[in-house]
Write a protein that binds this DNA or RNA. Sequence first.
DNA 1: CTGCATGCAAAGACTTTGCAAGAGA
DNA 2: TCTCTTGCAAAGTCTTTGCATGCAG
Lengths: 163, 163
Amino acid sequence: MAATGKSCAIGRFAAFLSQRGLRLTAQRRAILDAVFGTHQHFTADELLVWARALDRSVSRATVYRMLPLLTESGLVRALDLGKNSKVFDPNYADHPNHNHLICENCDRIIEFESEEIARLAEDIGRRLGFEVTGQKLHLTGACVEFGARGTCAHKGRRHGRSG
Amino acid sequence: MAATGKSCAIGRFAAFLSQRGLRLTAQRRAILDAVFGTHQHFTADELLVWARALDRSVSRATVYRMLPLLTESGLVRALDLGKNSKVFDPNYADHPNHNHLICENCDRIIEFESEEIARLAEDIGRRLGFEVTGQKLHLTGACVEFGARGTCAHKGRRHGRSG
DNA sequence: CTGCATGCAAAGACTTTGCAAGAGA
DNA sequence: TCTCTTGCAAAGTCTTTGCATGCAG
């Protein structure tokens, strides 16, 4: 499931590059494979580790130079989920309109889609005299499992790189 | 209009402090006066300047030590509005449920309230098995004035400290 | 009095940038 | 070939922290 839209996303990013007169280098390819080879959120540092595993020549500078390109392409978005670290989300390539819910207890991040949000956002924009072009909804909550038992299956679990 | 709930907010923060066994010092008072003496968003650096104008003895370290307390009290919230700088919003003291719309063209930040968001959030939470405890909606848009004229009255304006 | 709070300056974490060498198209 | 790219290391920016002194309660 992880790589559902991987090659597609990479292709779209390649198009984005050439449209700007930029080049698809070996290092950029490794970074793209790392980014779109997972659905997991990542920090700049994690991305460096992942990309280096694919191509030892990838440097930290190149990763930092790629991040703005990735976000400008619209395929990745920077998120501030409160936990003092800025993370990047590669899932906008496949799901351009998803949003996030973070569990206060187990720190799980749930992604969800809702058409109503877009509708509501448009509504609010109209009332204020704006055309809404983007929207981010960030919910925090407590899972019912935790509410009932005072803990939950995810509590304390580390979210290693999966797929 | 700026200081509508100022003394109230300061009182609530004082209560928050004593509840934690912490003290209300002269420096903290200056910082609180600066924070709740405006409805404007601010950066750590701006807060230092404002607080120092009220009490020269306020140091940068104390400002940084206050910021987590302010956010933990719930009276101030940290926002990541995209523009590479973390800003703090003191308006949660008076309006605990407001959200933000940022104009792509003139960088104006509009605050708004909508009951429907809370309702929608609760709905989404229920579907996912969560009790929603907090919500942040961040809209970006283009004001109709800009859409029609290619510019708007706010374009390029600096938002100095008002009230 | 006791223990939290402060300023200062040093340290830390994270990101950006100048430069000479390298490599896509 | 002509630029765009790269790695490296230095420099920047923002934030945190250790320590001796100060002060609220």
